[in-house]
Design a protein around this nucleic acid. Structure first.
Length: 588
RNA sequence: GCGGCCAUAGCUCAGCUGGAUAGAGCGCUUCCCUGCGAAGGAAGAGGUCGGACGUUCAAAUCGUCCUGGUCGCACCA
């Protein structure tokens, strides 16, 4: 059975107080004091006072006296209506070491989410378009949530859904063909290979296709006749005309190859990749059936589900020209998921807030159809540029690769500056890669999901203060101490820690002890930002410890005990960063 | 017009289910490397928590209204 230190420590205290006061005090009643000097935890005695018909300050005073000798408590003091408690390090540290030893990399493990199986859909870009910094938030947030849900005891099945068909593909392929000297109307199977050859190999990418798509969009706005040509291509694609089908397959592969690389780089691991193209046929059938069943109706030539009485407007499924809208395909996807993963107890989709209405409509539609499972979504706000939203129409897209390259370059420059003499280029570039990953991911994940991120390139290139590299740096300093000690040691909870008397040592242990609770809350609220905050706080404690407490020069017994604390702190930081998808380098 | 989200230091943001003098980072001023890595640390200046009313012993936090911003709201995804 897993042991969670903070629960145990606070639980014991709460139990004791409950006994003294003859009324229940919960672990959750404890709060953090406004100033850390006051104590590790505090209890506001307002409720206890009410129950006893006394003044809160009186109760606090009374408890302070009663707890003075309680084992594990170093100090209990009343401050007005508050009871402030400081624990002995020996109450916390051995438990933490035991917890770390038992759980290993799964430090902070709990069963807070119960025995759920979450089917979690995220990372849903389109093919034939570039990946830009706007997508990054979804990918990084999603990957972190998968880790968090798992750490909180849930089984997670990560899936992704990619839109690989539709007008955006038609637009892109129309211009691709046209700009390489072919005529869309006469484009034939024999032309496919020569077209593919005509596109330079380095342009066999989603980035390039996205650029072509953007150009096609502008061309369409300027010239009405383009519209007809694009819908000609669109029809050809829907009819599976062999030459267009072949070109679609080829360019789709370009997109997917690039996407797979990006997923890999960002730690996006998908168990099942769904495509819109595989939902197409079934969604036609579903819409027909819904119409027959009276759930959907015909209105002005289009098929929709009326949700006005639920204040959800109209859910449009099929256009008057007969083509399907994304909402229809979502219904087929939901059905497909349920068939393939009948064991899931909760389905979640990570989408940007602009799609929240569509998600609520989907949920309502599934309810009306009789789909029995909870189908929800997690929303997050978008990433915008200082001058406004990013869009291919405005042509102000910052692609993922361009952004990543800028950060890596800055990271390399910063690393080279510090290791001009002692490191070779290979070593510099390896460290810089991790630094860049931390910079990018932390910046995105530290912000509360429902706040807009205004993309600031200057900030993204900074590695000081509240940044991923700052936290990596704290871990690296600890690692450096461990390395220099020359000892290879594991967690030793049985050691005597009585010699660790400084305030800073205790504060470090307390901060580590809060990890499991932070993870629980972060999973419950679907906010990796809480873990990011905790990582920052721990890194700050680590730096204070580093400043105040000598380790390697300490007398042997103290050194042994302090090395345990250093080992634990590093382990906790590594685990925290890992939940955010951020690697910890050995050196930087 | 209806609905979602947001509003806290010059800037970017934390502030958990109401509770003790509202906290970080950046920027600014001044310091600290012969010291376990200065991507670090110390000190300082900087806030009528958008506004009003209400609930409460207690409101940045809860409720209502208002203002400002942003994103949605039938044939785009």
């Amino acid at each position: 059975m897993m042991s969670i230190t903070w629960d145990a420590v606070l639980g014991r205290l709460a139990g004791h107080i409950s006994e003294i006061m003859k009324s229940t005090v919960e672990v959750s009643d404890f709060v953090l004091p406004p100033k850390p000097e006051l104590g590790d935890v505090a209890l506001g005695c307002f409720r206890l006072a009410e129950a006893h018909g006394k003044n809160p300050a009186e109760i606090a005073e009374e408890l302070a006296g009663a707890l003075a000798d309680f084992e594990g408590v170093a100090k209990a003091a009343a401050a007005g209506p508050y009871l402030n408690i400081t624990f002995k390090l020996t109450e916390i540290l051995p438990r933490l070491l035991k917890e770390a030893k038992e759980n290993g990399d799964a430090f902070g493990q709990s069963d807070a989410l119960g025995k759920q199986t979450i089917l979690f859909e995220y990372a849903n870009p389109n093919t034939h378009k570039e990946i830009h910094v706007g997508h990054l938030r979804n990918f990084i947030l999603g990957a972190s949530l998968v880790h968090l849900f798992r750490r909180a005891g849930s089984r997670v099945i990560p899936v992704s859904y990619i839109n690989d068909v539709g007008t955006h593909v038609a637009k892109c392929l129309w211009l691709l063909v046209t700009k390489h000297g072919f005529d869309a109307k006469t484009f034939s199977s024999d032309d496919v290979d020569s077209l593919v050859d005509a596109v330079p190999l380095e342009n066999h990418t989603a980035q390039y296709l996205g650029q072509v798509y953007g150009e096609a969009t502008s061309a369409m706005e300027e010239d009405e006749s383009v519209k007809d040509q694009v819908s000609f291509v669109h029809n050809a694609l829907e009819n599976h005309d062999p030459q267009w089908e072949a070109l679609w397959q080829e360019t789709r592969k370009w997109s997917m190859d690039e996407l797979t690389e990006i997923f890999d780089e960002l730690g996006v691991r998908i168990e099942r990749q769904y495509f819109e193209s595989e939902c197409l046929d079934r969604s036609q059938e579903i819409v027909n059936q819904l119409e027959k069943d009276g759930i959907a109706k015909l209105s002005e030539g289009a098929v929709l589900i009326d949700m006005e009485e639920k204040k959800l407007g109209m859910m449009l499924l099929r256009k008057s020209d007969g083509s399907l809208l994304y909402a229809a395909k979502d219904l087929a996807l939901a059905e497909l998921k349920a068939q393939e993963y009948p064991e899931f107890t909760q389905s979640l989709v990570l989408v940007d807030e602009r799609q929240s209405l569509a998600m609520r409509q989907l949920d309502e539609a599934l309810k009306r159809i009789g789909y029995g499972k909870p189908y929800g979504y997690l929303g997050y706000e978008l990433v915008t540029l200082p001058e406004g939203a990013m869009s291919s129409r405005k042509g102000n897209i910052i692609t993922f690769q361009a952004f990543r390259d800028m950060v890596v370059e800055a990271a390399e420059a910063a690393t080279r500056e510090r290791h001009e003499k002692d490191w070779d280029e290979e070593r510099i570039s390896a460290a810089a890669k991790m630094l860049a990953a931390a910079g990018i991911k932390y910046a995105i994940v530290k912000q509360d999901p429902n706040k807009v991120i205004v993309f600031d390139i200057k900030k993204a290139l900074s590695f000081e203060g509240d940044t991923g590299p700052y936290i990596q740096y704290a871990a690296t300093r600890l690692g450096s101490i461990l390395k220099k000690s020359g000892w290879s040691l594991g967690f030793q909870p049985e050691l005597d820690f009585g010699g660790l008397q400084s305030d800073q040592e205790r504060k470090l242990a307390v901060c580590i002890a809060q990890f499991a609770d932070v993870v629980r809350r972060a999973a419950h609220e679907a906010k990796p930002s809480l873990v990011a905050r905790w990582c920052l706080a721990l890194a700050q404690e680590v730096n204070a410890f580093y400043r105040d407490v000598p380790v390697l020069d300490a007398p042997l017994e103290l050194k042994e005990a302090r090395l345990q604390l250093v080992l634990l702190a590093r382990h906790a930081l590594v685990c925290g960063l890992d939940l955010l998808g951020i690697p910890t380098p050995e050196e930087m």
